[in-house]
Design a protein around this nucleic acid. Structure first.
Lengths: 209, 209
DNA sequence: CCAAAAGTACACCATGCAGTGTAGTTTACA
DNA sequence: TGTAAACTACACTGCATGGTGTACTTTTGG
């Protein structure tokens, strides 16, 4: 009769891996709630149910652990916004689809966490901030590309597609991003999201189409 | 022959007032550069050329000193945005004037400092953040009021003036506020400001007028 | 010119935290 | 079942920091 599974956790991962994940989870939670400065390695160890020494065996320093969770959050929220322009289809549904993609991305908890922590740390480490800016700008490329294509097709009139793209995304972020980041406001309801997507597309097309 | 003015500083303020101002100046500078956690009272004292004890004689704790500079920055940037609606005048110049007021406010260094520090501290003290949110919302009232009046006059068509006001201000902040706050980008040039004000007014009137 | 008010230098306390070293226990695996 | 790897408890260092107490000097103003 084999020993019952009791002492063996349901989790098939090795101890080391489980510990590592526990540390990362705890770190994300603590950093998110308290920011970099106020989070202590002892606290993370406690939250993770791990000895402090184990934390240091996995991550050489607080800085490295922090960097690790930033890249992890970044990857978790990596879904790109983009849609290749289709000349034969009407503009409006394409545009709304783009805006919905953006909206979904902004509503991801991982993305919000990332942005909050990263922005709060802007003061502390400007180089990291610069890195973020660059990567965030890359993420805005999708919509710019679409606008450029629609312009080439004669359907949109603007002499600065990047500016128009920023304007457009700003309409979304004004409601669905900045208030959540800067002032901890709750995410939008489905109904609110619909209203914002629709009226942003409306306004944009009124002006540029 | 009276003693030359050498030992008496040109500043007519009493010693105690000069010291107090020096402390506040130093505190603003340090908090702004490093945030609450990383700023030390010893550091502030050093920067202010004041003994640490004097700092504590003026401000009972780091928290109180921080609160003090927040309210001070707040008052410095207190210029309100508002313009009473004039039925007989055309919409566009009125709107552009409002947007320029907003633009000027966002470009004030005091205002940017305030916002940066306050937002960075959102995590640390949510109650303070909530306070800020409320006060910031008050500042958005001016434009809402104007829109409401224009609507009552039949010149603008919207069923939600507050929403439209947020949209409008969002167009400005997308370029002239959030990038500066969240990612330390430089303030806009005059030319950029003009472009943004003009095209925001354009777009807004196209849609709502 | 003198007394009160304010500033200063400095020593000091308590605390919390990043990070290390170690000796012993548990887990993985061949 | 035995060994290497990983985890743990724990003690400890070093440092920065918020905050206080005190004895002494400078400024202020009547």
């Amino acid at each position: 009769m084999p020993k019952p599974a009791a002492p063996r956790p349901a989790n098939p991962l090795k101890l080391t891996d489980r510990k590592r994940l526990a540390i990362l989870d705890a770190a994300i939670s603590e950093f998110r709630q308290q920011g970099f400065e106020l989070t202590s390695m002892d606290g993370i160890a406690r939250t993770a149910n791990v000895s402090k020494r184990t934390v240091y065996n996995h991550f050489a320093s607080k800085e490295l652990l922090f960097a690790e969770i930033l890249t992890q959050l970044w990857q978790n929220s990596a879904e790109q916004v983009g849609l290749s322009y289709q000349a034969e289809a009407p503009l409006r549904p394409q545009l709304e689809e783009l805006l919905w993609q953006k909206m979904r991305m902004l509503n991801q908890q991982d993305f919000i966490d990332l942005a909050r922590v990263a922005i709060a740390e802007t003061i502390h480490s400007p180089e990291r901030a610069q890195d973020m800016v660059n990567r965030l700008n890359e993420r805005e490329e999708g919509i710019t590309t679409w606008i450029r294509a629609a312009k080439a097709d004669g359907k949109l009139h603007t002499d600065d597609p990047a500016f128009a793209a920023t304007q457009l995304q700003g309409m979304i972020k004004t409601f669905a991003f900045w208030p959540q980041i800067a002032m901890g406001q709750p995410p939008l309801t489905r109904k609110q999201q619909e209203h914002i997507v629709t009226s942003s597309a409306d306004m944009f097309l009124h002006y540029y189409a």
